[in-house]
Write a protein that binds this DNA or RNA. Sequence first.
DNA 1: ATCAAATCGATAAAATTTTACCCGTATCTT
DNA 2: AAGATACGGGTAAAATTTTATCGATTTGAT
Lengths: 219, 219
Amino acid sequence: MSIPIPTIKRFPSYLRILNQAKDAGKKYISATNLAEELGLNPIQVRKDISSTGIEGKPKIGFDIEELIHYITHVLGWDNTTDALIVGAGNLGSAIARYDGFASYGLKIVAIFDKSTEKIGTSVGSFTVKSMESLNRFIMENRISIAVITVPAIQAQAVCDLLVKCGIRGIWNFAPKDLKVPESVVVQRTDLATSFAVLSVKLSKKLAESDDLDSDEDMI
Amino acid sequence: MSIPIPTIKRFPSYLRILNQAKDAGKKYISATNLAEELGLNPIQVRKDISSTGIEGKPKIGFDIEELIHYITHVLGWDNTTDALIVGAGNLGSAIARYDGFASYGLKIVAIFDKSTEKIGTSVGSFTVKSMESLNRFIMENRISIAVITVPAIQAQAVCDLLVKCGIRGIWNFAPKDLKVPESVVVQRTDLATSFAVLSVKLSKKLAESDDLDSDEDMI
DNA sequence: ATCAAATCGATAAAATTTTACCCGTATCTT
DNA sequence: AAGATACGGGTAAAATTTTATCGATTTGAT
């Protein structure tokens, strides 16, 4: 019944390819095709798709529209959710200006910062609001998702405040593991984590090619 | 011998806590302690640490300095690697201005863009360079890592160019699954993927608390 | 109309990752 | 000095995720 997290993580990539294929005028796509496009195992793609309950046709593949519809629904991206950003630094500003969230069903509606120098200035189409106005804003606009882009040292305090204001989902870009009550969901997006994987894979790869080099020398 | 990817992904978090503890003047830390700090299972922490070969002392824990040293080494963060950014948009600029990469052993040394309007302008402490100068720059400075922050539609072309120039590791922020030769490593950092997980967990959580609410109504 | 090729779906095997369990050891308390 | 406690380490079990296998189905070609 519940869909594995790794599958959830692949869904956005599927969506990208599917939308691309749809735009290209295609009506069906096979798991094999999707897999090639993403560098995945076709069997895995079929399994992922099967978790949505959608059925395909042998020799044809899956109905693209149907896949898009169901995956979007499973991700909850078919309804737009309003969110706010706390932290108008480099990253927060970049996120505020990014216009690609619409396709994730996410709509940034405000950005907050505690610095008096930033309050009132504009970031993209927003005017930076004060932390004092945060509580009221969340209540009045029934916001349930917040994006944290403050420095690590302030992250927990901001998080606590957000939770107190009733925020239920936190997308955390600060390099800090936040503690929240059981009723709140935190998802961390950490550059360090991502880069760690790149670092290790790269060293391994470089070591491999060094090995090859020395092998070749021996010929 | 080879360390599991999930372990690698947890290492940066360990490092953060360890450095924090070190700064607080502590000399030892237990797996239990680390686990609490990060919301992990202590057994898992011990297992992760055991993959570095470091041994702890019962009732005391692990030597913090030693842990920091080994984890940093495993991640290859003990030597600084130069990297460049391609794409001086919002995200590229934010990354160029971010000064936290030093602790990952990563040093951004230049930023490139194809837009004639951006070339020559400054982003943080850098001056945006032209794509024409990319090849020469990579050669002369022996760059092996590149960060891609161009729009999805240009990502593959930029990637191909980088590979041709000899780049071996690509940190891809574009929402696109890049195809590269076997000798090149790509790591994608995708906002959509991260947000997908948040979306699904949040809907589940909200559904749960709805259930609770209705349960309570029945009392 | 028959056969080959492509693909799906279900089940099971393999691989990976997480968690449990038990024992030994160092420290602290009384 | 004895015993309780906190913790590490090793082995094994459990859970999760990925991959393989095989039969069934649809299409297109001969």
